[in-house]
Design a protein around this nucleic acid. Structure first.
Length: 286
DNA sequence: ATGCAGGCGCGCA
DNA sequence: TGCGCGCCTGCA
């Protein structure tokens, strides 16, 4: 455990847009305007000034390596923004609005549990539940007189009974989280193997065998936990924005498959990133 | 204060 | 295969 500091310049790195575009649940805005989050077994503070990003960490990982991986720093987001901006004016506008979004390389296990909890739920509540799960079953890190809690490993989370999960406020999702945890710990599902399988449709099928994982949650896991950027998760906001921009139909009549086909046709293998810009833009202006 | 929020799973045609 | 509905809970 040690404190580290790292500074870098980046044209495509906006903390607010990265942490509030709906991809992650463990980052919080502090009073001083910085974001603080838990990544693996590290507390990370991110501050942005006019021309540089400063990261301060306290934890067990080497900070430059952690940042390069977690923030996916070697990926050329300039190029991505350029490509997507050329699709049409709608994308150009939403990119201008959410400039600096990056897809984080989050831990697959944490992503699976987080998006199980997201079903029929809202973001403040999802964040609260994940915080309480971490506090109850994850490792504690003390830094500057404050306590932070890591997201529990599968083995740690297995200590929770369905009843105990219910008491943490999961509601009907308690059984789903319990079952999926058991499947991971027992090896019935192998996350590494899943991640290494480059056939995205095959992986999606396997994910949907998990209790609580339907099309939407599976797509979020593929995009946020496995960097499958061609995947386009459709939730009510994305439905709404895609229908308003392109389809202009009676909203109940539009099928999710139709929206996904449209997204694939327009955004190709960057549909997932396009989804983030559109989702963020629509959420923030509504 | 009912309806809704980033769905899923079930039962029924 | 394709619907419609119920479900925990907190918040506007």
């Amino acid at each position: 455990m040690k404190e580290q500091k790292l500074e870098f310049k980046s044209e495509v790195f906006n903390p607010k847009h990265i942490f509030e575009c709906g991809q992650c649940f463990r980052w919080n805005l502090e009073k001083d305007g910085n974001y603080v989050g838990i990544v693996r077994k590290n507390v990370i503070k991110v501050q942005k000034t006019e021309n540089k990003i400063t990261i301060i960490s306290f934890g067990e990982d080497d900070l430059p390596k952690l940042c390069e991986d977690y923030f996916d720093q070697q990926r050329d987001y300039q190029e991505i923004q350029k490509k997507l901006g050329n699709v049409d004016q709608y994308l150009k506008n939403s990119i201008a609005y959410g400039k600096g979004i990056r897809i984080l390389k989050q831990d697959l296990w944490e992503v699976i549990i987080s998006f199980l909890i997201s079903a029929n739920n809202n973001i403040p509540r999802i964040k609260g539940i994940i915080e309480r799960i971490s506090k109850a079953y994850g490792e504690k890190i003390q830094w500057n007189e404050k306590d932070y809690y890591c997201f529990p490993s599968p083995e740690e989370l297995q200590k929770a009974s369905i009843q105990q999960l219910r008491e943490l406020g999961l509601g009907f999702r308690d059984k789903r989280v319990y079952e999926v945890t058991k499947m991971v710990v027992s090896g019935k599902i192998n996350l590494e193997e899943l991640k290494n399988n480059q056939n995205t449709n095959e992986v999606r099928k396997k994910l949907e065998e998990l209790p609580g994982v339907g099309p939407k949650v599976a797509d979020c896991i593929l995009l946020f936990g496995m960097q499958r950027f061609e995947v386009f998760p459709v939730d009510v906001w994305v439905r709404r924005v895609m229908n308003e921009l392109y389809l202009k139909q009676q909203e109940e009549k539009v099928k999710n498959e139709e929206i996904q086909e449209l997204a694939k046709r327009k955004y190709k293998n960057l549909a997932g990133i396009a989804q983030q810009y559109l989702f963020y833009w629509k959420r923030e202006i509504s």
